[in-house]
């Protein structure tokens, strides 16, 4: 296995551990040479969704991300954890270029999807966002009806031509988001009339209605009650069959419950990236261990 250049940013088979799904991914200080083509394991290549190399980001003079490299695998849930202000949300927003909205932001490094650098000049950020959807910390349904909240973007994208298609698409998205049974009789009431947990699932339905490849979730349950949180966690588990999910969470139990892989961020650096089980059972770095065991946060 040719993994000398991979070990730094891909959770990898660890020779020292026999078990199939325990991987080692301690981030070494050696940064990979950017000019050198990265060789990949074929099976990994198939599953790769987003590839990030040496990503640094500055807000004006302040550096918020420092040389992040990470591989996100298709049809998995990847959780980003770390103390607040560590750059995990900033990193997440690099994946669909939401940071473009802030004028003082400067980005260096590679974010690659489908073989294309998403920050390249020719890349249309609107096209990127169609393939990389996002769910936010606070539910933000549009001030429109429940139906319109879901149908709006697909209609804009010409994904539906007939009324019947549209109805079908809305129903499917709401079903996938586990909301259909609760709202099927009040599709034309405003989206804001729902409870917080329902609003968040509506936002998830809105995001999946566009059929993106990747769904980014920025602390999607932090504003919700425990029961709604559990519903959404179940939903994430189901959705990963069709989508790749990257979620930011400040709740380590949540990461442990839903994520296949977990990355630990600290002060703009990615300290450790590993399979979730491994990360929580046996973190390789002192910082991650301290954080996970609750010594700071």
């Amino acid at each position: 296995m040719n993994d000398t250049t991979l070990q730094n940013f891909q959770p990898q088979q660890d020779q020292s551990l026999a078990s199939g799904d325990t991987v080692r991914g301690q981030y070494s200080d050696a940064t990979p040479d950017k000019g050198q083509p990265v060789t990949r394991n074929e099976s990994v290549e198939e599953n790769l969704s987003v590839r990030v190399r040496d990503l640094s980001l500055w807000y004006g003079e302040h550096q918020a991300l420092d040389d992040i490299s990470i591989d996100v695998f298709a049809n998995t849930v990847t959780a980003l954890i770390g103390p607040s202000g560590c750059g995990k949300s900033t990193f997440l927003r690099c994946l669909n270029r939401m940071n473009d909205l802030i004028s003082s932001v400067r980005i260096k490094g590679l974010v690659e999807m489908d073989g294309r650098d998403v920050n390249a000049r020719g890349m249309d950020e609107v096209a990127l966002r169609r393939r990389v959807g996002m769910v936010f910390q606070k539910p933000n349904p549009f001030p429109k009806s429940i139906f319109e909240n879901v149908a709006y973007a697909p209609r804009m994208h010409d994904m539906v031509s007939r009324k019947a298609d549209q109805d079908e698409l809305v129903e499917r998205a709401l079903r996938d988001a586990g909301l259909w049974n609760e709202v099927k009789d009040k599709l034309h009431e405003p989206g804001t009339s729902l409870s917080g947990g329902q609003q968040q699932r509506l936002c998830i339905a809105r995001a999946i209605a566009v059929r993106p490849d990747v769904i980014l979730m920025d602390e999607p349950t932090s504003a919700l009650d425990p029961i709604s949180t559990a519903t959404i966690e179940d939903l994430m588990d189901k959705l990963k069959q069709d989508f790749t999910i990257v979620t930011v969470t400040h709740n380590m139990q949540q990461a442990a419950r839903v994520a296949d892989y977990t990355a630990f961020f600290h002060l703009g650096e990615m300290i450790e990236y590993n399979a979730t089980k491994q990360m929580f059972a046996n973190p390789h770095t002192k910082k991650a261990e301290d954080y996970i065991t609750g010594r700071y946060g």
């Binding site: 890349m123 249309d124 609107v126 096209a127 169609r130 393939r131 490849d213 069709d242």
Partner: peptide
């Protein structure tokens, strides 16, 4: 499952205008 960037970008041209 989803369209490539090129397909989406082509469709977006008019909307960007």
């Amino acid at each position: 499952m989803s369209q490539s960037f090129e397909e989406i970008s082509a469709q977006l041209k008019k909307r960007h205008r």
